[in-house]
Simulated assay, not measured.
Amino acid sequence: MIGNPYQKYQQSSVQSAPPGQLLVMLYDGAIRFTKAGIEGIESRNYEKANHNLQKAQAIIHELIASLNFDYPISNNLMQVYEYMLYQLIQSNTYKKAASANEVLGYLMELRESWAKAARVQTDQAGDQHG
């Protein structure tokens, strides 16, 4: 049971968000955890690095699970996600921030693309109802 009002709000936001916005939220989480993992590596707090890079990997696994292979772009995204997973594992294993920084760049670029697509979808839905 969720007692904290902020947690209730967060859960409600996730449950009521349209699919495009959910993807953006996943990217936001992956970006946040990747940044925290990089901070852990740079500060030599390897427990923090490991914990956060694993969380980022878990979100990328969720992104993979959300792919709809009816669309050809899903195959391309799958390859990008697999590469990002590999880079995060490399970063975590060898405690090198460079690999995680590369992933961070890809995550931020993809997040912006999905955010634009979600805005277009919301605008089109608004035009149909207005």
Rank of each mutant, 00 (worst) to 15 (best):
K8T: 03
Q10A: 15
Q79F: 12
T34Q: 06
L77V: 04
P72Q: 12
L85V: 11
E102F: 14
H61Y: 11
A117I: 05
H51I: 07
A58F: 11
T34H: 07
T93C: 09
S43N: 13
T93E: 10
K95D: 01
L77M: 12
S66M: 13
Q128N: 12
Y46H: 08
K95F: 01
I64C: 02
I89D: 09
V80A: 06
T34D: 08
A49D: 01
P19D: 07
A30W: 07
M108I: 10
K116R: 15
E82D: 09
T34W: 03
A56L: 09
K48A: 13
Y86F: 11
M25Q: 08
Q90G: 02
T34C: 01
G20C: 06
M84P: 00
G126Q: 15
I64V: 07
S12Y: 09
N76I: 10
A115Q: 14
E42W: 00
G126L: 14
V103F: 03
F69A: 04
A56M: 10
K35D: 10
L77G: 02
N75K: 15
M25G: 08
F33T: 03
N101K: 15
Y86Q: 12
D127L: 14
I31E: 12
I59W: 02
Q124G: 00
E112D: 15
A117V: 03
P19V: 05
T93F: 03
I64W: 07
F69K: 09
Q79C: 08
A58Q: 13
I41P: 11
L53Q: 02
Y94H: 14
Y46M: 05
Q10H: 12
